[in-house]
Write a protein that binds this DNA or RNA. Structure first.
Lengths: 109, 109
DNA sequence: CCCAATGGTTCCTTTTTGGGTACTACCTAC
DNA sequence: GTAGGTAGTACCCAAAAAGGAACCATTGGG
């Protein structure tokens, strides 16, 4: 998605959705809210997301300051992703979305 | 957006975001959470959204059962949009998004 | 030497969204 | 008869997002 609101006109709901609205961002954020995860772990948690997409979404979340990426100089490489404090400020909303989605799953598309 | 999760695999966060993730849906829902609105009123509230887009977003919200559309057989035509009970169940989350967006507006894209 | 594991990147294609402009129907009021 | 207001549609095009497949670097192990 990476929809960018133009600052002035975009209301705050738009801004918020611009940040979490990517195809896989909500799920990524949700899983990262449970614990720090490696790239490969995230891949396994999102089997329908291609590696490329996962990378892109993580990069955007990183740029938006929601996720911190830590590379360990090891072989094979190890990269860990975790929520920043800013990212954690979003967790209540994510949980809200999750509960709502669960409660109304049967009527959702 | 109209992103459709395939049921089984899609987790509930995905499902929820699929419903509110359209370009203008968050804002439309937010305004409708304040009161019932006519088409023209929504247009004026979303000056950057074209008439066509507004129609499309409203149709999708209607199909997803979040918004109720009522046509009054008058001339000139009058069409009112309001949240269904299902749509209203989303309001707390929308308010959460709005607050979050406001609080962190300066660091958001 | 060859393979495996990890965490990517590149290139190309398809699908999905979004947007612009013009046009409509209907009745009222002038 | 003509203009105006409302709530749309139709058609076409551009941009963005998503997806698929293949490729890369590193190094430990056999």
């Amino acid at each position: 998605m990476a929809r960018r609101t133009e600052g002035k006109s975009g209301c705050s709901v738009e801004s918020a959705l611009a940040v979490i609205g990517g195809r896989w961002k909500g799920v990524v954020l949700y899983w990262l809210s449970t614990r720090t995860l490696r790239f490969g772990e995230l891949r396994r948690l999102l089997p329908n997301c291609t590696q490329r997409m996962l990378t892109l979404q993580l990069r955007e979340l990183e740029q938006d300051g929601l996720v911190k990426r830590t590379v360990y100089a090891e072989v094979p490489p190890r990269v860990e992703y975790e929520l920043t404090p800013f990212g954690r400020s979003l967790v209540p909303i994510l949980l809200g979305l999750k509960e709502w989605g669960e409660r109304y799953r049967r009527r959702l598309p």
